[in-house]
Design a protein around this nucleic acid. Structure first.
Lengths: 117, 117
DNA sequence: TCCATATATCGATGAACGTCAATATCTAGG
DNA sequence: CCTAGATATTGACGTTCATCGATATATGGA
């Protein structure tokens, strides 16, 4: 067809089916993927509350034995959520005696905020 | 049991099985749920790229016919993601002729940032 | 060494999600 | 009206996820 596409298509750059080619939005596939992984970690009501509780606890740390009754879920479930947050680099674990204490990794929440500039 | 719980439990407030009782973290269940809904909307690589492309487009708006090739997915899939973003209040739609133009809702991304503010 | 407690891991289950093909709906033009 | 093109909706399919019970691991105390 020789006809020009009438109105839209002001975006010169068009889809590349693969690779990390920069899209019109200045956000590569890899960047979007990386940001989404971090966002998925916080996009859960239980994990948001866990972060909130840990941050507001005395000394900035809380142990599983307190977090579990606080969110009202089974202990394995809480342990699972803490693992997700830890793997996202949002919290860190310190084992003292029988208890496991969790606290926020300083500055990591800033990375979440920075995604939206 | 009369024995005192040895080390932890410095948190006075404990789980309420229901209702919006304030948890030790100062974040109610409802607040966490509301924030999580908004975060889930952006916690996807495709939707992050759609937001990015729309924001960086001329006039701050883009139509589906440009967004679809830009992200390299089927048109119904793109339409689905745009609907998710729109229902989260992040973008708004304007139909001009046959085309549907999307642009960011001003200030709505600030709400996402404010969650960790 | 044995037991009780705290936490992590495993396996299963049901719900939510991303994706697409097919189809419906709407709009402009002939 | 009828056709062509753009977008939305529907239905299906496979994957990911949140949750729990059961179990494993580790630690401290008797």
């Amino acid at each position: 067809m020789t006809t020009v596409k009438s109105a839209p298509t002001m975006l010169a750059t068009i889809a590349e089916p693969c690779c990390g080619i920069t899209t019109p939005g200045g956000l590569t596939r890899e960047q979007a993927e990386t940001s989404a992984v971090l966002l998925k970690a916080v996009a859960d009501p239980v994990r948001l509350r866990l972060l909130s509780i840990i941050r507001d606890s005395e000394g900035g740390e809380a142990c599983v034995c307190d977090l579990t009754p606080a969110v009202g879920l089974a202990q394995p479930t809480v342990s699972h959520h803490l693992k997700v947050l830890a793997e996202a680099g949002l919290i860190e674990r310190e084992k003292r005696g029988t208890w496991a204490w969790y606290r926020l990794v300083p500055g990591r929440l800033d990375d979440v905020r920075a995604i939206f500039g």
